[in-house]
Design a protein around this nucleic acid. Structure first.
Lengths: 141, 141
DNA sequence: TTTGACCAGTTGCAAAAAGCAACTAGACAA
DNA sequence: TTGTCTAGTTGCTTTTTGCAACTGGTCAAA
C-alpha cells in the first residue's frame, strides 16, 4: 500500500497497466504467441528497446510473466505469462471489443475479436489452457 | 489512422486510455456519480488540476464524455458519459475483478466489485440505463 | 577458427509529459 | 461587500519517454 495512490481496484490495476506499452506486451504474448525480446521489439508499434527492457522487468516483478532461459540458445530468454497474466484475458477481450465498436479497426482484426467475444467462454478457456500449458512446460526447468 | 502507432484493437484502446488518469476519471463518473470538476479533483488519487483539465478535454474530443453547463450555477460544468463511455463498463468491471483477485483491495471494494460480477449483466444493465438517462437529461438542453 | 548475423540489453542525450504550488477571473450566498 | 467557491491557467521542476548508437556475448556457416 505504501507506494499506492489509493487501493481502489481500478487504481490498483492502473498502477500496473497505466501506460502505453504494458498491455501491448501482454497482447504479444497472449494473442500473438511471441516469447522473445526481439519478437516483441519487432511489433508494429515499434517500442524502444530500453522501454521494453523496463516493462518486461516490471511485469516480472509483478509476477505477471516469468523469464526463463531458452533451452537451445543460451542468450535467448523465453517470456511466458503466469496465471496472473493469463487472468487478464477477459480484460483484453473487452478492451478489444470496445475498440471494434468505437475506434478504427481493420475488418480482419474485427473478425478476430468477434470470434473471441461470440465464441465466448469456450474459446477463451481453450486459449487460456494453452497458455497454462506453456507456463507449465517452462516452469519445470 | 495518421497519428496512430497501429490499428490493432488493443493499441487503439491504449491511445485513449494508456495513462494513469483517464480511467480514474471515467470511474468517478461511472461508479461514484461525480459530475463536477471539483468533485473529481477531490478523489483519493489527488490528480493535479492541470492534468484533470487536459484529460477532460481529451475525453470530450474522443466523445467519451460531454460537458454541459449546470442549470443552477453558471460557472459549473456538468460532465456526463456518452454511450461510447458507458460502453466501457465491461472493461471497468473486468479490470476491477482482476484487481480483487491479484492486487491489494479492501474487503469493502472487493464486495462491491463482486456484486457487479456476480449480479452479472442485470446489475450492469441497470447501471448503464441510469447513466443513459443522465445523458438524455443533459443533452436535451 | 574466423566471419558476420543475431542476442538481450545499456548508455547518453533530447523532447515530452507529469507534478506542484500559486494564481486568476468570474459567480454566488449572506 | 466580503468571503467562499467555481473552473481553470501559469510557471517551474522533476520524471518519463523516445531515439540512436553501442556493448559484450552467442551461434551457424565457411
Amino acid at each position: 500500500m505504501k507506494n499506492s495512490k489509493s487501493n481502489c481496484p481500478i487504481n490498483q490495476a492502473l498502477e500496473v497497466f497505466g501506460d502505453k506499452w504494458t498491455l501491448l506486451i501482454i497482447r504479444d504474448i497472449m494473442f500473438d504467441g511471441k516469447h522473445y525480446f526481439r519478437e516483441m521489439l519487432g511489433s508494429d508499434e515499434k517500442i524502444a528497446s530500453n522501454i521494453l527492457t523496463d516493462r518486461l522487468n516490471k511485469l516480472e516483478e509483478f509476477r505477471i510473466l516469468i523469464k526463463t532461459k531458452d533451452a537451445h540458445h543460451k542468450q535467448k530468454n523465453v517470456y511466458s505469462l503466469t496465471n496472473k497474466g493469463i487472468d487478464l484475458m477477459p480484460v483484453m477481450v473487452n478492451l478489444a471489443h470496445w475498440s471494434t465498436k468505437h475506434r478504427e479497426v481493420s475488418d480482419k482484426d474485427k473478425a478476430h475479436v468477434m470470434e473471441l467475444v461470440d465464441g465466448g467462454q469456450k474459446l477463451q478457456d481453450k486459449m487460456s489452457t494453452a497458455l497454462r500449458e506453456e507456463l507449465k512446460s517452462v516452469s519445470l526447468e
